[in-house]
Simulated assay, not measured.
Amino acid sequence: MRNKENEVFHALERLATPYVGAARANALVERAGEAAIVMIGEASHGTSEFYAERAELSKRLIVEKGFRFIAVEGDWPSCYVLNRYVKGDAAAGTIAADALRDFARWPTWMWANREVAAFADWLRVYNDGKAEEDKVGFYGFDLYSLWESMDEILKYLGEKDGADLEAAKRAFECFEQHGREEQQYGIAANFYGEGCEAEVVALLRKLQDKWKTARPGDREDALAAELNALAVKGAEDYYRTMIRHDAESWNVRDRHMAAALERLMAYHGPAARAIVWAHNTHVGDARATDMAEEGMVNVGQLLREAHGGEVYAIGFGTYQGSVIAGRGWGAADRSDEGSSGGIRKLGRAASPARTGRQAASA
């Protein structure tokens, strides 16, 4: 083990380039700027520097390299409110904090924080005066928003009526009996044959690609309806699978995120260029980790398999500092000091890493 650590240390010493901030990361921006998809990962969802540096790198990729949208490890409905805000929709709020109030799902600090608010305000200014098709978007591609996405679909289709609305109502009625309790749905679907898979597949088919024929003013909202339906389908599969297989439920989630990103790429056209914000475990390549031994895949692997060299990954890590986190899923947030270990030793030897501060809630 010691010899292996020494090998890694010497490789870092020989190959590593000190990172002193996005403003001076010209070589990194040039390399990343050649890709169609740049994934920027972080080692925690609650450390200020990760969020701030990721935002600064993203600004450079947008301004200097023409990247068209950001897709984050967040729920589609909440992120779509922020997307409308950065594109100048007054109904989404007058300041970023207004739009961020929609992030009510735990952990709220993951996206409702000052770093994201500052970036959203910058992006709104950047988009100001641009044609709608040239504005940079901000989307969520996760799948936890089962109920919220159903609500958004019903709201959207309620203004249109027709067969699509009937399909949405059938899906909603199927889920409604479970009282918006995901675990209850998973148990009922697995053990009592009360699943809603057929209904959500039918709904997605109804809404798929409707944005292609929508009038210009409704085009992105039609996309939102499709992505909400995709989130419902992914969530149904995830909560049904989670009861039986932890590893496979992970795969369901990452396959969903990759599929959602592909649809966003299709929407933005052949020259689309995307920036992904997610945890390192999603943007790395599972094939190079022990995840592969468990039969697990991740977004980074799936995108590399589909796009090869068009994908570029950047990961953030640290060996000390503080982070906002909860002791368990759904627990209240608190600030915890980072732990020590092998990364601490290697990090200190390779270069003086910055101390991680906790992300500040908006």
Rank of each mutant, 00 (worst) to 15 (best):
A22I: 07
A22N: 11
A23Y: 11
R24A: 15
R24Q: 14
R24S: 15
R24W: 15
R24C: 08
A25N: 06
A25Q: 08
A25F: 09
A25D: 14
N26W: 06
N26R: 11
N26D: 14
N26V: 03
A27N: 10
A27G: 14
L28R: 03
V29M: 11
V29T: 13
V29Y: 04
E30W: 02
E30P: 03
R31Q: 13
R31Y: 06
R31E: 15
A32V: 01
A32N: 03
A32M: 12
G33Y: 09
G33K: 11
G33I: 13
E34Q: 15
E34T: 14
A35E: 10
A35F: 13
A35H: 04
A35L: 09
A36V: 04
A36I: 06
A36E: 12
A36M: 13
A36D: 14
I37N: 00
I37D: 00
I37R: 00
I37H: 01
V38R: 08
V38A: 12
V38L: 10
V38S: 05
V38Y: 04
M39A: 08
I40S: 01
I40V: 08
G41T: 00
G41H: 01
G41E: 00
A43Q: 10
A43Y: 01
S44G: 02
S44C: 02
H45I: 12
G46I: 02
T47Y: 04
T47D: 10
T47R: 03
T47Q: 10
S48Q: 13
S48G: 06
S48K: 14
S48C: 04
F50E: 06
F50G: 01
Y51L: 15
A52I: 13
A52G: 04
E53L: 04
E53Q: 14
R54K: 10
R54P: 00
A55F: 11
A55W: 13
A55Y: 05
A55C: 13
E56K: 13
E56Q: 09
L57M: 06
L57V: 00
L57W: 00
S58I: 05
S58Q: 07
K59Q: 05
K59F: 10
K59V: 11
K59C: 09
R60Q: 04
R60P: 04
R60N: 12
L61T: 02
L61S: 01
I62G: 03
I62H: 03
V63E: 13
K65R: 15
K65Q: 14
K65T: 05
G66F: 14
G66W: 12
G66A: 08
G66I: 06
G66N: 05
F67S: 01
R68F: 02
F69Q: 13
F69Y: 10
F69A: 09
F69I: 08
I70C: 08
I70H: 02
I70Q: 01
I70M: 11
I70K: 04
A71T: 12
A71R: 06
A71N: 08
A71W: 04
A71E: 11
V72W: 00
V72Y: 03
V72L: 14
V72R: 06
E73C: 07
E73F: 03
E73N: 07
E73S: 01
W76K: 11
S78N: 03
S78V: 07
C79I: 07
C79H: 14
C79V: 07
V81M: 05
